[in-house]
């Protein structure tokens, strides 16, 4: 009887562990796709994390942005799991369902995508980076552990993006 209850506890613990593991796996695969306010972006920029934060500002109407998206997607797909990619859409919130979600589905984008619903740009843009003129594409890389950050306001090719990440990582 005693043995049995021990076994039962073991099974329970195992099941619990499995559930936790499964849940964490699940959350890894669940793509964030939502409309947010600036506080959500601020949370990403300031959170405690061992991952290198790769934040790209884009929009569905911005051709050079779309051109560089695959490079961010391949960083997101890296097996090392050292990076957290967030694609911040500056499309208009009322076009989220039609334009952004449709675009994400069509392109099969896997990275987290948040649409920043803050039309009064001058109220928040300097909080991302004071050198930002307001044009996209723009990219911000943050190493939360070292506090290193790098902001660029231009279209990147794949080599430039990797180089940029490496300067912040090391």
């Amino acid at each position: 009887m005693r043995l049995r209850s021990k076994t039962l506890i073991k099974i329970c613990v195992m099941m619990l562990l499995c559930a936790i593991l499964f849940a964490s796996c699940d959350s890894e695969e669940n793509q964030r796709l939502e409309i947010v306010k600036f506080d959500a972006l601020e949370e990403i920029m300031t959170r405690k994390s061992n991952k290198i934060e790769v934040i790209n500002f884009w929009a569905t109407w911005c051709a050079p942005c779309i051109k560089e998206l695959p490079y961010f997607e391949s960083i997101n797909a890296e097996e090392s799991n050292d990076y957290k990619v967030t694609l911040v859409s500056l499309d208009f919130a009322d076009e989220f369902e039609k334009k952004v979600k449709g675009f994400v589905a069509k392109r099969g984008l896997k990275s987290d995508i948040i649409l920043l619903d803050e039309i009064d740009y001058n109220s928040w843009i300097d909080k991302v980076d004071s050198t930002w003129s307001g044009a996209i594409p723009a990219t911000l890389i943050i190493n939360h552990n070292s506090g290193k950050r790098k902001f660029v306001e231009k279209e990147l090719n794949e080599g430039e993006l990797i180089q940029l990440i490496n300067t912040v990582k090391n």
Binding site: C62, P64, Y121, N122, I125, D126, W132, S133, G134, A135, I136, K154
Partner: peptide
């Protein structure tokens, strides 16, 4: 002075 949001 403000930032002009738009296209490059």
């Amino acid at each position: 002075k403000t930032k002009a949001i738009g296209c490059t």
